[in-house]
Amino acid sequence: MKNILKLRWPTRNGFPPLWCLIALGLTIGMSFFFAPAAEISAVRLLSSFPRMIEFCGKIIVVPDWSYLPDLGGKMLETMEMTFLATSIAVGISLPLSILAAKNTSPHPCVFHATRSLLSFMRALPELVWALVFVSAVGLGPLPGVMALAFVTVGFMAKFFAEAIEVVDPKPVEGVAAHGAGWLHIRTFAHLPQAWPDFISTVMYILDHNLRAATVLGLVGAGGIGYDMIMSMRLFDYNRLILIALSIYVVVTLLDRASDVFRKRVT
């Protein structure tokens, strides 16, 4: 009777499999071994605990409502940067993706060249490109939009190209057989079939870009990020919480909207 209720793993001998134990042991062992390198120690973790609580107490404060109109303006600027950069990127990515897809590229050389260009564009994060563009054109939202659009093209054209590569070849043949030209075949057979994937990609990237745009202000490239870093430095927690909440709300709303939109398209 006692044996029936005894716990065991669903293996031959009732013990967890050996590889599982080894993997677990390795993970824990490595964490302890490398913890000092990252300046993490049990003492420090414990001693910083009260400070953490203190910080949480500070950050959960009554929001500074008088800052709201200002915040609205900044948030609007961030969203404008996001939409502008994404639209510019869509315009550039569409033609590039045709060159970067195996089945629509005019020549393998063009395909490889375009793919390399795209990897170069997304090699560095937006923040780094923003630094580059800030030193090139000065402070403000313009370098932010440029940096965002630049990196977005790198991702978007690659995703578009991958969507084009998996389209059904039968309709393509159907259009080609009736004497349609090179560009006709691409606009009438490849693009419509890749369309739902394009929409998904744009929605995902829009979401990503909004979050990226919020941090571009850190390097003076416009948007809400500048206010965020300033209130952090000035210990202005009443503003900081409002900024964090507003970003959360906007990202969530965009996420919901893109869900609804995507369902209608496919």
Binding site: K170, P171, E173, G174, V175, A177, H178, G179, A180, G181, H184, F188, A189, P192, Q193, W195, P196
Partner: peptide, 26 residues
Amino acid sequence: TGMIFQHFNLVGRLSVMTNVLTGRLS
């Protein structure tokens, strides 16, 4: 030269009219 296929080879996401119009592309 027009061609008719066993599996029709229409672009499914486009309207019937647009599919017929692809015959005019040449």
